[in-house]
């Protein structure tokens, strides 16, 4: 995936990504996307082209458990979030709803706003096409790997007819 980098700082919390009063009034992902990054830049959704990448500092997505935060980002057209580090629930939610989240410590300083970047989800790398440098994300383990590979929990369930932690269904012959 190739796109433009949108760069944010440290400690971007879920209330900045989407304030409660907007996320608590609709279930529609397209409607949620209109408020993506509302706490930082109200014009943000208009600036995104499909496949763009958010690059951020430490503890991206801290605070509330709201799944609407990664949903708003995904439906705004962002293809992946790459950050120095993620808050626990956000990271889990992102993979569950099929928004790739790559943790690369120090990445925020390696990318400038507007840089063209390429994210390789198979290798889990980000390449800054301006500086020609490639950075490796930490590997995923266990169920997180399964979720990312499937494109989220619903996609996994659709394909396998079960959740990753459930034993395989016995085949009836």
């Amino acid at each position: 995936m190739n796109g433009k980098a949108h760069v944010f700082g440290d400690y971007v919390n879920t209330d900045l990504i989407i304030p409660f009063r907007f996320k608590a009034r609709t279930n529609d992902p397209v409607e949620l996307a209109k408020y993506c990054m509302y706490g930082i830049d109200r014009e943000f959704p208009k600036k995104v082209s499909k496949g763009d990448v958010i690059v951020a500092g430490v503890n991206f997505g801290g605070g509330s458990s709201r799944e609407q935060a990664p949903v708003a980002i995904k439906y705004a057209g962002i293809g992946a979030v790459v950050a120095d580090s993620f808050a626990r629930i956000f990271f889990r939610n992102a993979l569950v709803i099929g928004l790739p989240a790559l943790e690369i410590p120090g990445i925020q300083k390696q990318v400038k706003a507007g840089d063209a970047v390429a994210v390789d989800l198979r290798k889990r790398t980000l390449t800054n096409l301006r500086t020609k440098k490639t950075f490796q994300a930490a590997p995923l383990t266990g169920f997180l790997r399964d979720l990312e590979a499937a494109g989220g929990l619903a996609a996994y369930h659709k394909r396998h007819g079960k959740f990753p932690w459930e034993p395989g269904k016995r085949k009836t012959t």
Partner: peptide
């Protein structure tokens, strides 16, 4: 501990979840 909405839906159905 806290989880997101879709994972809670999966617990409603399966009675289980995974935790590191």
């Amino acid at each position: 501990t806290g989880l997101g909405s879709t994972e809670i839906a999966s617990v409603w159905a399966s009675g289980k979840t995974w935790l590191r």
